[in-house]
Amino acid sequence: MQKIRIVHYINQFFAQIGGEEMAHVPPQWREGPVGPGLALAAAFGQTAEIVGTVICGDSYFNEHTSEALPEILDMIKAAGADLLIAGPAFNAGRYGVACGTVAKAAQDELGIKAITGMYVENPGADMFAQDVYIISTRNSAAGMRDAVKKLAPLAQKLVSGEPIGASSEEGYLPRGIRVNLFEKDRGAKRAVEMLVRKLRGQDFTTEYPMPDFDRVAPQPAVKNISRAKVALVTSGGIVPFGNPDRIESSNASRYGRYDLENIMDLTEGKWATAHGGYDPSYANRDADRVLPVDVMREMEIEGKIGSLFRYTYSTVGNGTAVKSSKAFADEFVKELIKENVQAVILTST
C-alpha cells in the first residue's frame, strides 16, 4: 500500500516561531513534520508520511482569511496531499477557527480528507463539528499525546474509506448525526450505573442530549376566513383504499397528493389509513375521523370558509424522520402558495 501523504496545518506557537507577538506571520511552507507533527508521524508509523507543514499566525489567518486561505490551499494542493490534519487546537479559539476553516476548505475545495482536534468548548468546535471530524481533546497542549492517539486511527479510516464508528468509539465530537454502536454493557446496566452516578452527584454523560427546537413566528390571522381557500393536510396517513402511493406504515419516505373534487365524505372501502402507529380500525371505518372532509364540505356550503382546496396532502407521521416530513412540506407548500391557499388545517393522530 502506498503511504498516505499528509499535510499538517499548525499555528505560529506550535511551530515555535513565537507566541502572541508573532501571531501576525503569513502562511509559510516547511518540508516534513514540525513540532506536534513529529508525534503524529510517529503515531502513523509506516502507513503515512507528513510531506510538509503549513504554518500561519492565528491573527493573520483570522484577519486576512480571504488571502490566507487560498494561499494555504495552494500549498496543500501542490504537495499532492491525500489528507490534511489541522491542529489540534485544544482550547485556543482563533487557532480552532483557523483549523476548522482550513479543514473544511480542504474537503470542499480540494476534495481531500481532513481532520482536526479541539476542546469541546473551543468556538471552532461549535462552528465546524457538523462539517469536519474534530477529535475531542483536553483544553491544553498537555493533552497532545492523548489527542494524537485518537487522531491517527480516525484519519486512517477516513482515507481508506472504512466505516466510521460512533463519536464515543472514535473519540470525535458529536456531529449531530446519530450513529449506532454496540456497547460493552447492556442498556439496563448502563442506566443503573448512570443513576448511581447521578445520585452521588458524580459526573455522567447522557447518551442523548436534548435537542433545541427552532421556532417560527406565528403568521397573522386570516382576515376573512369565510372567503378563504383552506387546505387539509394530515400526518394520519389517510389514503385512497389500497394505498396507491405505497406510503410506508412507519418512517414514510413519501407523501400522497389526493384529489378531493366531488368528494363530500370519506367512506369506508374507498379511503383508509396507511399509518402503522395506531389502531387503524376507526379510521378505516370512517376516514373523516382523521381527515374531516365531510365537515369541511359543510363549512364550504354554509359559507364558513371560501372553499376547500382541491387537493389534500397526506403522509404517515409514525417514526417518520422529522427531516423527511420537513422535506414533504417544503415541496407541497409551493403548490399551496401558487394556488393561493390562505390557510391550512393540519390534522395529526
Binding site: A166, V179, N180, E183, G187, A188, K189, A191, E207
Partner: peptide, 8 residues
Amino acid sequence: GFGYLSAR
C-alpha cells in the same frame, strides 16, 4: 435495555 445497542 435488554440489548447492547446504543447511539451517539
